[in-house]
Amino acid sequence: MTLARLTLAAASMLPLAANATTVRVHYDSPKGGLAIRGDKGPMSWSKGADANSGDGKVWTYTWPDELGEVLMKPALGDDKVAIGGAYRLAAGSTRDIYPFFGAPFGKVKIIPDFASPQLKNSRKLRIYLPPSYDENRAKRYPVLYMHDGQNLFDARTAAFGVEWGIDETVNRLVATGVMEEIIVVGIDNTPARVDEYTPCCDPQYGGGQLDTYQRFVLDTVKPYIDSTLRTLSGKESTAIMGSSLGGIASVSIAQKNAAVFSKAASLSGSFWWNKEALVTTLPPRLPVKFYLDAGTVKDGLEETIKMRDALQKQGYRQDADLFYHVAEGATHNEKSWAARVDKPLAWFFPWQ
């Protein structure tokens, strides 16, 4: 063995050596062991270097800072490499990662008759749990809250028989290393959808129960999700998204609760509501990322452009805390939203 390899081998035995880069892999593998594949040192993409563990649950591997930035992935046994993208570790860093090795397919569970004491009604919650949820129980996840839950996962319950395909889209983006795993909470609408998703009050359509619906999301839905699932409950890991009236609901809720949500997406948002009041009465710039889009075919593009311009006047900047997108040829329906929902998902929850 060369001197360089001896040095690297010795370094790998030290969990937190000085002037060394360390990865800690959280994965319960008491018998199979775990190896690190990568692009430098004793690691390669075809053969891993053995990681060390005292309990079979946290596996540590260390290499000298001299290797510089390293791309790596954990491997289980000889043939299973972690699903998703490679991890990029800067020299001198210590990184905790939570991989999974099984099929990259999440699952949807339904909570029936979920009561709202604020609105005096009930509805279903449709919850997408990511692929690793049952496999790696050490991991916690960001959460995306979405309105019109019955349209998200199942064509049989979706409006006009077309679903968003959120589960399939997230599965694909996770498997290809585009986005992180997340939990998605779909909150079904009710016959009072127009009222619940809108601030007061449009001259033609009325509305005005959004503040009450907001309290339902914040005081009932989110506490339930955080107490029953392995979530990352802080602001930076919490987003809200919807389309049409659900789009303006998402923007308004995030504006009023910037301490809870760091990201809000409006697909084809109904910014015409109440004579464009949401456009003309913006609060000062907030520490929230906003995604806005609209299609070019009868989809409220003119009002969405006005909302974008108003946000930019407040200091929001494209690709920093504002993502504005025009969907050429798209109209106001689930098929169009399904075709581009990957954009806010990847922007809100990018890999690493």
Score class of each variant (00 low, 15 high):
L6Y: 14
T280W: 15
V162G: 05
G84C: 05
L232V: 10
P142W: 06
K57F: 10
Y197A: 07
T157S: 01
R88V: 15
K80S: 00
L71A: 12
G48W: 07
N52H: 14
S12H: 01
N189L: 10
A158G: 08
P15T: 06
G106I: 01
T198F: 14
A259Y: 14
Y145G: 13
W347A: 14
P99H: 03
G38P: 08
M13Y: 09
L16H: 14
Q318G: 08
P203M: 06
T296M: 00
G38C: 04
N274P: 09
A346F: 04
K289Q: 15
M43E: 06
L8D: 08
T94E: 13
G106M: 04
H26V: 13
L232Y: 10
N121L: 09
N333H: 07
G32F: 10
L282V: 01
R193S: 08
L119D: 14
D55W: 03
E66N: 14
R193Q: 04
P112W: 11
I127N: 02
W351E: 15
N121F: 00
G207I: 15
L245G: 06
P74G: 00
L232K: 12
R340K: 07
P131T: 01
M13L: 15
A249S: 13
W337M: 08
P350V: 01
S243Y: 01
I305R: 10
D65N: 14
V194E: 07
A20L: 07
S132H: 02
F261Q: 11
E180R: 12
N171Q: 02
R172L: 11
A51E: 06
M179G: 12
V70G: 02
Q150V: 09
R88L: 14
L16D: 15
Y133K: 11
G149S: 04
Q118V: 10
Q204N: 14
A264S: 12
S336K: 04
L282K: 04
N151S: 05
K124R: 12
E180P: 05
A18C: 07
D28L: 05
V58R: 08
S250E: 10
A294L: 00
Q255K: 03
Q314L: 12
W164Q: 05
A90N: 08
L292T: 09
P15Q: 13
M307L: 13
D79C: 07
A158P: 09
T62D: 05
P283E: 01
G246P: 11
L119S: 11
S237W: 11
E302K: 12
R24K: 12
P283M: 05
L301P: 01
P30E: 04
S122D: 12
A10C: 14
P74C: 00
P283F: 00
F114C: 00
S29I: 02
Q150P: 10
N19E: 13
I240G: 03
T304R: 02
S227R: 07
F349G: 00
V58P: 13
P203W: 07
L14S: 13
A339L: 06
M1F: 14
A259L: 10
L301E: 03
G186N: 05
V217R: 05
V185E: 05
L67T: 07
L152S: 01
